[in-house]
Design a protein around this nucleic acid. Structure first.
Lengths: 203, 203
DNA sequence: TAACCTACCAAACACTTGTTAGGGAACGGC
DNA sequence: GCCGTTCCCTAACAAGTGTTTGGTAGGTTA
């Protein structure tokens, strides 16, 4: 035998992230409840019990996946909001930032989409509801600012508009595949073009 | 004891639909895998085993829920397509019809959204993939017709546009509540206005 | 060499899951 | 009254679930 099979020297936090990445991939593909810890361990090349050396429960895995994602998301959003742009530019920046997050955390976003409503009922995941409330506040106020300034139409139900914009952005995580034909920025550009100007030809 | 507790004379097919309705409600709220048959039975006021007098498995319940919904959906879609309208009018009619289906089958639509990708892998639910393929064909060809006719913009990725329109319509099932402020037709009108003309004010 | 730590395995645990088999109450037709 | 049907209950089953416990190979440190 020339060499060892594996380096076996990956430090602790590195290994944690690897395992969380594979867990997120399986959660996103199968759904949280439909995913067994044995399946995750299988995908990671180990046995089910061994996962409990790194994590103390299956729930704590999805918890860490989601909270890590949300932390990074809000870091990006807060940076955009701190720039003090106009309503339209803020929306454009938020959407672009969102697609970048989808590009970076696709499984996490997909999990968030599918499971957050169910998880948010548990006290442990109260931060999901908090995040959603903050989310709504930011987008709604930006839209209202735009309506007041005459940037956005005033003949639409503002809450309907909010859900429209929010959903069109985030459902993209269900079909988006990194390394596809379009970069996140290109997708954001086209999405913004559709949302802002519509798909009908202007005459 | 003055009277009997229950009428107890509901005919068979009626009772089936009642049970399927409550099952659909729970499936939509909790997710299919997270829902136990005991929970469904609880909600229906009976014990788990009793469900198996009406259905032969949990899987056959969601099967019947989804296939019933899809049958009715395509009945509506086919009627629209048979009318032979122009591209823009076809899109408008399809979207309006979709919101009517969401109004009538909200739980079924929510289940379809969340579980279809996972279920479609099983042979029993092959019709889900079939339906999705037909769906894509109808919408894509209509959009392409509109681009060719000069009704829709030609500077957008057509598949991106398709997913955009499709998603914006169907995710509404996740927040829509029958009996709210807006009728399905009113929501369809505003959605179409946003999709076709955008949310930015025209100058 | 010895003690120690990291990262995993092997095997089991308690519990929940979907599902089944047998029984029985209410009711209508005869 | 009797029979059959409808609809549900009681009680259990086997399989699968997340999790725990004790052990151990291999590397690092002393």
């Amino acid at each position: 035998m020339p060499t060892k099979k594996k380096p076996q020297v990956t430090p602790t936090p590195e290994r944690r992230r690897e395992l969380l990445a594979t867990a997120a991939e399986v959660f996103a593909a199968q759904g949280y409840n439909a995913t067994t810890v044995r399946r995750i361990a299988d995908e990671a090349g180990m046995l089910a019990g061994s996962l409990y050396y790194h994590f103390d429960s299956k729930e704590s895995m999805i918890d860490e996946i989601l909270s890590t994602f949300l932390d990074e998301l809000w870091q990006g959003y807060d940076a955009v909001l701190a720039a003090g742009l106009g309503p339209r530019e803020t929306i454009e920046a938020l959407v672009t930032e969102s697609f970048r997050e989808i590009d970076r955390h696709r499984p996490a976003v997909a999990i968030y989409q599918k499971e957050s409503k169910y998880l948010a009922t548990q006290p442990r995941f109260a931060y999901l509801a908090d995040s959603q409330a903050k989310f709504e506040k930011v987008w709604l106020s930006t839209l209202e600012r735009g309506v007041a300034e005459g940037t956005f139409r005033d003949d639409l139900d503002i809450r309907l508009t909010y859900r429209f914009v929010r959903d069109t952005v985030w459902v993209a995580a269900s079909w988006y595949r990194p390394g596809g034909h379009h970069s996140p920025e290109e997708i954001a550009r086209q999405y913004l073009s559709m949302v802002l100007d519509g798909i009908a030809l202007r005459t």
